[in-house]
Computed example of a mutant assay.
Amino acid sequence: MRDEWFIRGNVPMTKEEVRAVSIAKLEIGSRRGGGERSGKCARSILFDIGAGTGSVSVEAAVTYPDLRIAAFEKKDEAISLIRRNAEKAGVEDRVEIVPGNLPESLEQYLTGHPETAPDYVFIGGATANTAKILDLLRVPQSGIRVVINAIALESIQEVLSALRDRKIEPEISQISAARAEKAGPFHLMKGMNPVTVICFGGTVCENIALHRNGVL
C-alpha cells in the first residue's frame, strides 16, 4: 500500500519500503507463536505496539484476511488516525485499538484478555520499553515471532541489550531506501533515514515446512 493512501496527520508513519519488509519479516501464515493456537497457522493475532497511524496494522489486515490485530497507541491523534485508516480500508472489525501508555496498557490488556495472546508482534514505536514488553509477552519462552524497527543508535542499543540479556540471537537487517525527487529537468535520489529491522522467534508451521521439503 502506498504511503499516500493513508490519512497521515502529524504522526510518524512506517514508510512503505520499510513496512513491506517488516510485514514480510513477520512471516505471517508461515510461523506461529505458542499457546492454545500453537498447532494452527490460521486465525492468527498480531500486536502492533506503538502503532502510530496504524499503517502496519491496516496493511497487515488487508494482506491477511484471517489476521486479527490489537494496535497499542497512547496519542489521541494517532488513535484517531488508526481508526480512520482502518475504516477506510474496511478492516475496522479486525483492528482493535488499545489506548494508553506502554507498557502498562499491554499488561492490562494481557491480564484482561488471556485468550488473546499474540502469534506475531511488531514494535515500531516503543523501543524504550523493549525489556518490559518482552517479559510481559514471555519472550522467548512463548515462541512469538517479533519484529522491531529502530532508527536511533540508542534505540538499537536498547533493543540489542534486552535481547542479549535474554539470550536471544536476532536476525538484523538495515534498510536504506531513497526516493526520486524532481529538480528541474532532473530526478535526484533523496535518502530516507536508515531503519534497522530486528526480528526473532516463531515456529515454522508444519505444513509450510513440508512444502519446503517437497513432501506436499
Rank of each mutant, 00 (worst) to 15 (best):
Ile156Trp: 09
Glu206Ile: 05
Val147Ala: 08
Arg138Glu: 13
Ala180Lys: 12
Ala180Pro: 04
Gly100Val: 06
Val91Cys: 03
Ser105Arg: 02
Asn101Val: 11
Ala183Glu: 14
Glu158Ser: 11
Ala128Pro: 08
Ala128His: 04
Gln174Lys: 14
Ser105Ala: 12
Asp165Ala: 10
Gly201His: 11
Ala178Pro: 11
Asp135Ile: 00
Ile172Gly: 09
Thr116Lys: 15
Asp93Ser: 12
Ala150Tyr: 11
Leu160Met: 15
Ile151Gln: 06
Asp93Thr: 08
Leu160Ser: 07
Arg164Ala: 08
Arg84Phe: 00
Ser155Gly: 08
Met189Glu: 11
Ile198Arg: 15
Arg164Asp: 14
Leu81Gln: 14
Ser155Arg: 02
Asp93Val: 02
Thr127Ala: 05
Arg94Gln: 05
Ser105Leu: 03
Lys88Cys: 00
Ile168Gln: 13
Val91Leu: 02
Glu92Phe: 03
Ala117Cys: 06
Ala162Ser: 15
Glu87Gly: 07
Val121Trp: 00
Leu136Ile: 01
Gly124Trp: 01
Gly125Cys: 00
Pro103Glu: 08
Gly191Asp: 07
Ile79Glu: 14
Val146Pro: 06
Phe122Asn: 03
Ile151Glu: 05
Ile133Trp: 03
Glu107Leu: 01
Ile156Ala: 07
Ile82Gly: 05
Glu181Pro: 12
His113Met: 08
Pro194Gln: 11
Gly201Thr: 11
Ile175Cys: 06
His187Lys: 11
Val197Ser: 07
Asp93Phe: 05
Asp119His: 06
Glu77Ile: 10
Leu136Asp: 07
Val95Gln: 09
Pro140His: 09
Val204Ala: 06
Ala178Ile: 02
Phe122Ile: 01
Asn129Leu: 00
Ile172Arg: 10
Gly125Tyr: 00
Asn85Val: 07
Gly143Lys: 06
Thr203Met: 10
Ala180Gly: 14
Val197Arg: 08
